[in-house]
Design a protein around this nucleic acid. Structure first.
Length: 260
DNA sequence: ATGACCGGGGCGCCCGGA
């Protein structure tokens, strides 16, 4: 059978619940990892997804951040926050949740943006990626394992529409890529998706400046898999069509199919 | 298509996003 795993920065579950429900009905994913809920755990519209056959584990905090996992193939051993997750302004933010779904241990993460390389939020971003690597290093590698979500890092210069336009900004620095590399050195490999249009499988296009019509995108939503998951991956793509139209998130869903 | 951002919280010529 095919087990379809999806990661999607939904940019407010409140604003996007109808669109998410319609996408789920049309695309029949088994596991959906969400980021940027922008609401509390209590306010997550779980019932309508329960009614559609999905168990829901949400980890919200209000106005910002928030992550969740929806699954119709089991949702066990839920963990909220990384084991040694760094705080920002003395607060642990809702940026990580894990569960076991159909034998796959999976993390849905929303890595801090970083804002600016001189901002304290940038150091926080690097520390968060470090904590993620520490978390991954302690995993049980005998069964399938994935970390997916919005990493807010372009892995290579080819993962952005114009590397020169982002010189001196976050998302493309050597330090961010080194932190991502440290995570992958725990023996995690990126599942590289197909593009449905153009050459690069971007996952984010800013709402501003007609970035989507002009295809000025970034590839920052990723799925990292351990070897026992990677061997089961059959396909992966970014559903850029979901970025179209009124009421779209600024991120498109990353879809990974497996024969688990 | 000839465009010119969006969501939250709550009315701040706000903040944050990437």
């Amino acid at each position: 059978m095919t087990v379809r795993i999806v990661s999607w920065n939904i940019n407010s579950i409140t604003a996007r619940a109808d669109r998410l429900a319609a996408w789920i009905e049309a695309n029949t994913p088994d596991v959906v990892c969400l980021q940027e809920l922008k609401t509390t755990t209590e306010a997550f519209p779980a019932q309508r997804f329960n009614d559609a056959g999905y168990a829901v584990a949400a980890h919200g905090q209000g106005r910002w951040n928030g992550v969740a996992i929806l699954s119709r193939v089991g949702l066990d051993h839920i963990q909220r926050d990384l084991t040694d997750q760094p705080a920002f302004n003395n607060a642990t933010e809702a940026r990580a949740i894990a569960a076991t779904c159909n034998g796959v241990r999976i993390w849905s993460v929303y890595v801090p943006n970083g804002r600016d390389i001189t901002d304290p939020h940038y150091e926080y971003k690097l520390n968060f990626l470090g904590a993620l690597a520490a978390e991954a290093a302690n995993r049980d590698d005998s069964s399938p394992y994935a970390i997916t979500g919005d990493f807010n890092v372009c892995p290579t210069d080819d993962d952005i529409y114009d590397i020169d336009a982002w010189e001196g900004t976050t998302h493309t620095t050597d330090a961010e890529r080194a932190a991502l590399n440290e995570l992958q050195e725990t023996n995690l490999t990126e599942v590289y998706p197909r593009a449905l249009k153009y050459d690069q499988p971007f996952t984010f296009w800013d709402y501003r400046n007609l970035d989507f019509p002009k295809n000025r995108g970034l590839r920052i939503d990723l799925l990292l898999a351990n070897p026992s998951l990677m061997t089961h991956v059959t396909d992966a793509y970014v559903d850029r069509n979901e970025r179209k139209g009124k009421g779209a998130s600024d991120h498109a869903p990353l879809v990974v199919d497996t024969n688990l």
